[in-house]
Amino acid sequence: MRKVLLAAVFTVCGFAATAQQVVIAALGDSLTQGYGLIEQEGFVPQMRAWLSERGADVRLINAGVSGDTTAGGAARVEWTLTPEVDGMIVALGGNDVLRGIDPAVARANIDTILQAAADRDVEVLLVGMQAPGNYGPEYKADFDAIYPELADEYGALYAQSFFDGLAVEGDPAAARELMQPDGIHPNAQGVARIVEALGPQVLDLVSRAADE
Rank of each mutant, 00 (worst) to 15 (best):
M1E: 13
M1T: 13
M1K: 11
R2I: 12
K3N: 13
K3V: 10
L6R: 14
L6D: 14
V9C: 09
F10G: 08
T11C: 12
C13K: 12
G14I: 03
A16G: 11
A16P: 01
A17C: 09
T18N: 07
A19L: 13
Q21S: 14
V22I: 13
V23Y: 03
A26K: 00
G28L: 06
T32G: 10
Q33S: 12
Y35G: 00
G36S: 00
E39Q: 12
E39D: 12
E39G: 11
E39L: 11
Q40C: 03
G42W: 08
F43Y: 14
P45N: 03
R48L: 03
L51W: 05
S52F: 08
S52E: 15
E53R: 15
E53C: 09
D57T: 12
V58Q: 10
V58P: 10
R59L: 15
L60A: 10
I61N: 05
N62C: 06
G64Y: 07
G64H: 06
S66I: 01
T69W: 10
T69K: 12
T70S: 14
A71N: 12
A75T: 09
A75H: 08
R76F: 11
V77E: 09
V77Y: 09
E78C: 00
L81K: 02
P83I: 13
V85F: 08
G87L: 08
M88H: 07
M88G: 00
A91P: 01
L92W: 05
G93M: 01
N95T: 04
V97S: 03
V97I: 15
L98D: 06
I101R: 14
D102Y: 08
A104C: 09
A104I: 03
V105I: 15
R107A: 11
D111T: 06
D111V: 00
T112H: 13
I113A: 07
Q115A: 14
A118T: 12
A118W: 05
D119Q: 15
R120G: 08
D121F: 09
V122P: 11
V124G: 08
V124W: 03
V124T: 00
L125A: 07
L125Q: 05
A131M: 03
A131G: 06
G133K: 05
Y135Q: 13
G136T: 06
G136V: 01
G136F: 04
G136R: 00
P137D: 13
P137H: 10
P137R: 12
A141W: 04
A145Q: 11
I146H: 03
Y147Q: 10
P148A: 06
P148H: 05
P148T: 01
L150P: 07
D152F: 04
E153D: 13
E153Q: 15
A156L: 05
Y158D: 04
Q160G: 11
Q160V: 14
F162M: 15
G165I: 05
E169S: 13
G170F: 01
P172I: 05
A173F: 11
Q180T: 00
G183V: 06
G183F: 10
I184Q: 03
H185P: 07
P186G: 00
A188E: 08
A188R: 09
G190E: 01
R193H: 12
V195Q: 07
V195G: 07
E196R: 10
E196C: 01
A197Y: 01
G199P: 07
G199F: 02
P200G: 03
P200C: 01
V202C: 04
L205A: 06
S207W: 02
R208D: 06
A209N: 02
A209P: 07
D211Q: 15
E212K: 15
